[in-house]
Design a protein around this nucleic acid. Structure first.
Lengths: 334, 334
DNA sequence: TTCACCCGTCGAAGCGCTTCGAAACCGCTT
DNA sequence: AAGCGGTTTCGAAGCGCTTCGACGGGTGAA
C-alpha cells in the first residue's frame, strides 16, 4: 500500500504538506500542489479511508429514503435530486440510505461518522427513528412532522392546510359532497405523518363547511381505481368532487371515471395533491395543490448546514400550500 | 463517539483485550469476552470505521446518475434502489452523485477516496468520463457500453438485440412498415449508448426483413405525441407498427393515436422498451421488451465487489432481451 | 516442593493520517 | 541592512486502533 509518506518523498515535501495539499484545509502553493498531485497520480496513492475522516466533518450528508410500499416514487426522486444538488452547493456529498425501516442505517452512519448529518423522509407520526434523531450524537432534519415535533427541526408542506385548501376550493365552487381518495392503506396503517395530516385538514374543512365527506385509501392499480369509482358512485350518488392524494392513481382514476361516463370536470371536479409537473402533464391537466419536493429538499439541506455551523434554527418549517387551477375543476352543475 | 478505551474501562480490562475479544485474533476467556460484549452492547460501541476493515476500503460505493434532460427517471430510480440494496448486502453504502456531467464528482470521489468504487450510468458512446474510468486509481462499472469498451467492465441490457427483437416480433406478425419512436432528440445528440444501440438494432433488423422503417426521436409532452402521431400517419400511411423507446411518452402516445381513431392493436401494433411494471400497468397493457433496471444495478454491484476482491471479471456483460407479449400487438390486418 | 509450561491479559510501540504551532522564506518598505 | 507582514512549509504530537512481546498465575509432571 502506498502511503502518504511515499507521496511526500516523491514530491519532495513533508507528509503534512501532502495532507494539506489534498484536503485543502490550508493554502498550499500552486507549484507544490501540482507536484503533490503528480506524485499521487504516479504512485496511485489513495488515502486510507478510515483516517481521512478522523477529524470531524466528513462533508457527507445521509439521506434516508425508506423505500416502503406505497410511497410516491417520483416525489422521492425529486427530493433526492434536490438534496444532492443543494448539498453539492455546500460542498457536501450525499449518502443514500434506503433500508426498510432506516433505523439501522441511520444508526450506523451516525456511529461510524460516515456522514455528519442526516435528512430523514417518510416520517411517521410515531416514528421509531425519532429517539435516534433527537439524540445529541447526530444532526438531522426530518422532512415530515411527527406527532410530537419537539426537539426536532422539521420541514414539510403544510399538509393539513393543503387538505383544507382543496376542500375550500371545491366548496367555493358549490360542491356539497366530496371524497378524498387517499394513498394506499398501508400508508395510513404506518401513520405516515403527511398522509394523516392531509386527512385531518380535509375532514375538518369539510365539517366546517358542512359538506358530506368520505375518505377512501386506495391502492395504485387500475383495478383498485375501477373498484373505487364504482363504490363511490354507489355509496355517494350525490358526489360531485374528489380530492386525490395518490400520485400513481391519478391516471387510472380519471380513466375509470371516464369509462363510467362520468365527465371531468362536467360531472365531477377533481383536485390532486401532487408535484406540479405531474398535474400539468396529465392527460387532463389537473387542478392541484403542489407538493414542492424540490424545495423541501433544498430547505432541508439549508437547515442542516445551519445546524452544522451551530447557528440557531427554527423548530419547524411548514410551507404554505398553493392551489393552481387547471382543467379538472368547475362549479357544480355547469 | 464511544471508543475502545471506554469499552475497556467499562469491562474492567485493557483496550488491547477488547480488541482481541472482538477480533478473535487471540484467545480470550469466556468470562472476559462476555463482559466485553456486554460493555460493547451497553455503550453501543461501533469500531471506528478505519482499522476494522482490513486496512483498505471505505465500504462506500459511488453511484453516478447524471440527471440530464431526457433520461428516464423511473429507470434510474429503480437502478438506484437496486444498487443500494445490493450494496448493503455486501456491507457497503452508496454515495449519490448527480452532477451535470458527473466528471467532477467522480474525480473528487476518486481523489479523496470517499468511495472505493463507482457505478456509472447514462453512458455515452464517447463519454468524457471514460479516461477517468479506465485509470487505475478507481474501480468502476459502467452501466452502458460505450463505443470502445476495452479496459472497462460494462453491464447493460443488449439494446441492439432488443431493437432487433422488437422488429422481429412485428415482422413475424406480418407488419411491413414500422417506426421507432425514440427518446428525446437531446439523448441522441449526446450519443447516449443505449439509445444509439437500440436504433442500430432496429434499423438493421428492419433492413434484414426488408421492412420500410423510420426513426423519430420525440419529446415527452402530450403536444409532442400529438404532433408525432399526425406526422407518422401523414408520412407513412401504410404504417401498422411502432416501437416506442420513450417511457414518459407511452401514455401520451397511445392517447394521441386513440384520438386519431387509430385502434391499438387493431390498426396499429405497439411494442415498448421499458421496465416491465410500466408496461404491465399501462392503460392498455403493452407488449414490451423489459429494461431490467433492478437486475442491472444488482449485477453492477456484484461485479464491483468481485473487482474489489481482486477476482477476475468479464469485460462486458450484455443481458439478453426478453419480449413479453401483452395486449398492444396483433397480426397485421386482423 | 519445585519446575516448566500454558493461557489469558497487559503495557507499550506502532500504523497512517491529521493538525497545531512555529519556523522559513518571500518581496517590500524603511 | 534591517525590519515587516504574509504566505508556505515543516516537525512533532496526537487520534483510535492493532499488535508484539512479556508478565503472572494457574496447572501437571518430576
Amino acid at each position: 500500500m502506498v502511503k502518504i509518506t511515499d507521496v511526500a518523498r516523491r514530491a519532495g515535501v513533508s507528509p503534512s504538506t501532502v495532507s494539506y495539499a489534498l484536503s485543502g484545509k490550508r493554502p498550499i502553493s500552486d507549484a507544490t500542489r501540482r507536484r503533490v498531485q503528480a506524485a499521487v497520480h504516479e504512485l496511485g496513492y489513495r488515502a486510507d479511508a478510515g483516517r481521512v475522516r478522523a477529524g470531524r466533518g466528513s462533508k457527507v450528508l445521509a439521506l434516508a429514503v425508506p423505500m416502503r410500499p406505497g410511497i410516491h416514487v417520483p416525489v422521492m426522486t425529486r427530493l433526492a435530486v434536490s438534496v444532492v444538488t443543494a448539498a453539492r452547493a455546500h460542498d457536501h456529498d450525499v449518502l443514500l440510505l434506503t433500508q426498510g425501516d432506516g433505523e439501522e442505517g441511520i444508526g450506523r452512519v451516525a456511529e461510524t461518522g460516515l456522514a455528519d448529518a442526516v435528512i430523514v423522509t417518510d416520517v411517521q407520526l410515531h416514528d421509531p427513528r425519532l429517539p435516534l434523531l433527537r439524540s445529541r450524537s447526530l444532526l438531522s432534519v426530518p422532512i415530515g412532522v411527527p406527532a410530537e415535533p419537539e426537539g426536532l427541526t422539521c420541514v414539510d408542506l403544510d399538509f393539513r392546510a393543503a387538505g383544507e385548501l382543496c376542500v375550500e376550493h371545491l366548496a367555493r365552487l358549490g360542491h356539497r359532497v366530496v371524497a378524498l381518495v387517499g394513498s394506499p392503506p398501508e400508508v395510513y396503517v404506518r401513520r405516515t405523518a403527511f398522509a394523516r395530516r392531509l386527512v385531518e385538514g380535509f375532514t375538518s374543512a369539510a365539517d366546517r363547511h358542512r359538506l358530506t365527506s368520505a375518505v377512501h385509501p386506495c391502492g395504485t392499480g387500475r383495478e383498485d381505481a375501477r373498484a373505487l369509482t364504482e363504490r363511490l358512485l354507489r355509496e355517494l350518488p350525490a358526489l360531485t368532487a374528489v380530492v386525490v392524494h395518490n400520485e400513481p392513481l391519478l391516471d387510472p382514476l380519471t380513466d375509470a371515471f371516464e369509462r363510467l361516463e362520468v365527465r371531468i370536470p362536467g360531472d365531477l371536479s377533481l383536485t390532486a395533491v401532487c408535484p406540479a409537473p405531474v398535474a400539468a402533464a396529465a392527460r387532463l391537466p389537473l387542478t392541484s395543490v403542489a407538493v414542492p419536493s424540490a424545495e423541501l429538499g433544498a430547505r432541508a439541506v439549508r437547515l442542516l448546514m445551519r445546524k452544522l455551523s451551530g447557528a440557531p434554527v427554527p423548530g419547524a418549517t411548514l410551507l404554505p400550500p398553493r392551489l393552481t387551477e387547471r382543467a379538472s375543476t368547475a362549479p357544480r352543475g355547469v
